[in-house]
Computed example of a mutant assay.
Amino acid sequence: MRWVWWAVRRLAGGVGVLWAVATIVFVAVRLIPGDPALAILGGPGSQASAEAVARVRHEYGLDQPVLVQYAVFLGRLATLQLGDSYAFRTPVATLLGQQLPVTLTLAVAGLVVAWVLAIVAAWWSTQRGRFAAGLTSALSVTASVMPHFWLGSVLIVVFASALGWVPAVSDGTARGWVLPVLTVAVPVAGYLAETVRDGVVDAQRSAFALAARGRGETRLGLFSRHLLRHAALPGIALSAWAFGSLVSGAVVVESVFALPGIGRALVTAVTQRDMPLVAGIALVSAAAYVVVLAVADLVERVVDPRTSAGSSARNGGARGGTARRRGPGRPADAR
């Protein structure tokens, strides 16, 4: 029953997030200067006649009150009718099917690389003395505040232009993914490294770590079998936020490295007031974030089963344990 309520809460929260995103998109697009009817007809340079503009406004319901437009907009989204893109003259669902895999690949690969970098940094900083800890902390903080456009430009200059190891832009090969993935992974790795390192330091002082050392566990064995599992819990919770950061960072990274993902499409859609495409990209991104958040919560419960127990059960168990320690009939303040 506990899992059922967890799923219901997650589903209700996800629906609320999608509704909020849809509302923000609806308001934001209408605040952009310009006539959406002209955007549908090809922009101000299309030199459309007044009759054509009026016809388009009537066809797309732009002559209706705002609340009516909002209700129609939500109704279409609820039935997954995303419509056609004004800019690309193609169904939004088709565009998302073509471009979403690129962005998801970038985000997932970036998250995996970020975790690898964070674990290596946490191991080195906790096993190599104070100098290594201080250096790793400084590098982690520096990495976490690097803007994507600056980091991507530096990587292009160093590894593509100067060294020639990888291409400067995406060329459809595995080598073309190296720089984009590193660009999105490095800032996230900075946050994760600090979180995991702090968890490892706390776990080193715990009783289970002392017991493992007493049994003759090696440093690597202690780190991989005991400390990392404890230290990874905050990082797992942070991974959901990190995935959202990776998807948002894709807007810049895909433009820098010419990747055909939803980030580049979003830039085009916003500049051309392409509301169906903007709404589709925003809702798909929000849905992906909701799913990743649920998966992170589920993984955290699997790694640490204590998180799945309700607070009432924990409190009840604590009270029962206290009563058993006191013994029958012994008052709480008895000495």
Results as ranks from 00 to 15, higher is better:
Trp115Ile: 03
Val108Lys: 00
Thr79Val: 11
Pro147Ala: 08
Leu163Asn: 03
Gly129Phe: 05
Leu111Gln: 03
Gly97Arg: 14
Val158Ala: 06
Leu62His: 09
Ile119Tyr: 03
Arg130Leu: 11
Ala107Tyr: 02
Ala122Met: 07
Ala114His: 02
Trp123Met: 05
Arg89Ala: 15
Ala118Val: 03
Trp124Cys: 11
Thr105Tyr: 01
Ala114Asp: 02
Gly134Asp: 07
Ala109Leu: 11
Thr79His: 10
Val158Thr: 13
Asp84Gly: 00
Val116Gln: 03
Arg128Trp: 10
Ser153Lys: 10
Gln81Asn: 12
Ser144Thr: 11
Gly75Arg: 09
Leu104Cys: 01
Pro147Thr: 08
Val102Lys: 01
Leu106Asp: 01
Thr94Pro: 07
Ser140Thr: 15
Ala114Lys: 01
Phe88Asp: 13
Gly97Ala: 11
Ser161Leu: 15
Ser161Asn: 14
Val141Phe: 08
Ala78His: 01
Ala118Phe: 01
Leu95Gly: 09
Val145Asn: 06
Leu67Thr: 03
Ser140Trp: 09
Ala133Leu: 09
Ser153Met: 14
Pro101Tyr: 01
Gln69Asp: 04
Val116Asn: 05
Glu59Thr: 15
Leu82Lys: 09
Arg128Asp: 02
Ala143Cys: 12
Val141Ser: 14
Val158Trp: 14
Ser140Ala: 15
Ser85Thr: 10
Val102Ala: 04
Ala143Phe: 13
Arg128Leu: 13
Leu77Gln: 12
Val68Tyr: 07
Leu104Ser: 02
Val102Ser: 02
Ala132Val: 09
Ser85Lys: 12
Ala121Ser: 14
Leu74Asp: 01
Ile156Ser: 00
Phe73Gly: 03
Val72Cys: 05
Ala160Thr: 07
Ala160Ile: 13
Leu77Met: 14
Gly61Ala: 12
Gly83Glu: 06
Ala93Ser: 15
Thr90Glu: 15
Ser144Gln: 15
Gln99Ile: 07
Gly164Gln: 06
Ala107Trp: 03
Val112Pro: 00
Val92Leu: 07
Leu151Asp: 04
Gly129Asp: 05
Asp63Gln: 10
Val92Thr: 08
Arg76Thr: 00
Phe131Arg: 08
Ser140Phe: 10
Ala87Val: 14
Ala87Ile: 06
Gln99Leu: 08
Thr126Tyr: 01
Val120Thr: 02
Ser125Met: 11
Trp150Tyr: 05
Gln64Trp: 09
Leu80Gln: 06
Phe88Tyr: 15
Leu155Gln: 05
